[in-house]
Design a protein around this nucleic acid. Structure first.
Lengths: 331, 331
DNA sequence: AAAATCAATGTAAACGTTTACCTTTTATCG
DNA sequence: CGATAAAAGGTAAACGTTTACATTGATTTT
């Protein structure tokens, strides 16, 4: 692969001039510029990003890091697309890593990204007091948290109004006449889970209904746990008439449990899921969900990160995007 | 961030020694090794991957490139996990890029990956005679194609036996008594589409049934086209009694069209989709599909690539994995 | 017309590693 | 005991860029 030096030799100029042409600095006369361009074309020259990143101190490295729990989760996949599209539009590349909610993996990837000297990192912390992420932030690398946030730390972040989203879902169920509403929650050390739980409580309180703890189960965000929790709830002597499931994968699990028992939705049991699914419309019946603007979260986070790179001193921005109750036919 | 030089100074040895410790070369006596380790720990030293990649000619750069059409497609998401898991197990990082089936984007990302000097690249070519990929292969970068393949080019590749998969699906439908079987295909310039189409023909021929071209539609793999094609087929004067849809996203589209018309599955119309979906079981009725071993494809491709890196001269390997007809209740 | 300024380009150092080669020390052998 | 080999560590060049600084020649100023 042709290097700067080759191009310089071929065009009979110095490497500095070639470099200036590449970075289209103004200080080069049109004729030389054309000469260099011709030489680059003839040799098929592509600037080496590695060497460039190594040398360049100021300026952009044109590389972003994105660490998510699992790319197979449609919510994160959609978010990742938001990130990638904005990055691509600015000619940034993205290194995407899956942490599997595993701190060891998260740490490995944070190390990698740092030593790849990415311009900045976007991630949802594994927990509210995720030490690895905290250390990362302290080290000065620009970080934007998405979806979840870090406790006691002011920084750029993009969240969704989880409490409000959950409130609307449960409020909707109550207005439809449901009183026994099962809640399948996620891990409680992540901020989103707790906020959604609060939204549930809010709605119950608003309608002066008691919160019965036997209707509340804690899962781990995975499909299998959604199914298991749903089964526990349906086995109750006086089972809930509606289920509110706090993420997409667990919703799929709950649906499996319901179909297994040949229960009719919404006749026998109503269901609302948190997170929209690309196939929610294709389900029978189409599923009512709290839709999070995942794509927009990714977009906004990337824009925030890019702005921070341009101006490291700018004030920290907290964005809270609104989820939307998408009413279909499962309630 | 502490550098090799800092560590060397701190441990009172030369940078060469530190480098040797890092790469645990044998030529360093235990005491010095410990000294260096201590210094590294004290300074929190992390080797800089960028500098390392720049310098190192032989040996591994520990970075792989993966270009897929769309991470939101569950098939590719699953494949990506296969790639990532194997890469992670070997301490390789993966740069993931979405091409959106757009040659311009594909080219941009290939440039990026090359100039990041990745060890190798895994990708499904956008078409059988994808010039950009062809040029990449010619340039000597190790490439493994997955899912789709390149015409007239012998190279490491991992495919799925599409023809066989399609055959089994259609054969199943025919044995169930269906005669008018609608086919919703993808772009015909990709190998998988054409092979699946051949499988359809095979099955019809095996049962001595004529292939009626009005039952065959070509889409573009996207959800919207699946829906549109399904609508066209259902509008036919003598509509098909079964639909075979050649990828997951189009299947979701077709399902939407069917529900829109309030048709019953499988009573009014039977459906088989190519590609399994994480939620296929949660559909009502659960969807019968041809399951592609996507995760295994990703795994195998990565292993192949890693082997190629270890031995650039080894014979090219063509892997053809078997899909599986997963019979649920939609036929 | 000499001096000062400016625009265009060149020179060389730096970024953080790896590695070929050289030096020093220590062990081995006849 | 001197010669030799092996082991451990050091020196410096290289990887492909960017960039501070130096150089050159032309133009303007006095």
């Amino acid at each position: 692969m042709a290097s700067l030096t080759d191009v310089a030799r071929h065009a009979q100029v110095s490497i500095a001039t070639v470099s200036r042409v590449i970075n289209n600095s103004d200080k080069v006369v049109p004729e030389t510029r054309d000469l260099v361009h011709k030489a680059m074309a003839e040799l098929g020259f592509k600037p080496n990003r590695v060497a460039r990143r190594l040398r360049q101190k100021g300026g952009f490295r044109h590389l972003l890091g994105l660490i998510i729990p699992d790319i197979q989760n449609p919510f994160f996949a959609e978010m990742a697309r938001g990130v990638e599209d904005v990055a691509y539009a600015h000619k940034f590349a993205v290194m995407l890593c899956n942490s599997d909610e595993d701190m060891k993996k998260e740490e490995f990837y944070i190390d990698v990204l740092q030593s790849e000297s990415v311009d900045g990192i976007i991630l949802p912390p594994i927990s509210e007091r995720d030490g690895v992420v905290l250390k990362l932030v302290e080290s000065g690398v620009p970080v934007v948290t998405v979806d979840r946030s870090l406790a006691h730390r002011s920084m750029d972040k993009v969240e969704v109004d989880n409490r409000r989203g959950a409130f609307e879902a449960v409020d909707h169920l109550i207005k439809l006449g449901h009183r026994r509403i099962g809640l399948i929650a996620g891990r409680l050390n992540v901020s989103t889970s707790r906020e959604r739980r609060l939204g549930y409580d809010d709605a119950m309180a608003a309608h002066k209904l008691p919160v019965a703890s036997e209707y509340i189960r804690g899962g781990d965000f995975k499909q299998a746990s959604g199914r298991a929790m749903a089964e526990e709830l349906l086995d109750l002597p006086s089972p809930p008439t509606a289920l509110f499931v706090l993420n997409n994968l667990m919703t799929v699990g709950a649906l499996e449990a319901i179909h297994r028992r040949k229960l009719k939705i919404p006749g026998d049991i109503a269901v609302i899921g948190f997170d929209d699914l690309p196939w929610a419309e294709a389900l029978d019946p189409p599923l009512t969900v709290v839709r999070q603007p995942a794509y927009e979260v990714g977009q906004a986070a990337t824009e925030l990160l890019l702005k921070r790179l341009e101006d490291p001193k700018r004030a920290e921005t907290h964005l809270k995007l609104l989820p939307k109750l998408v009413i279909r036919n499962s309630c």
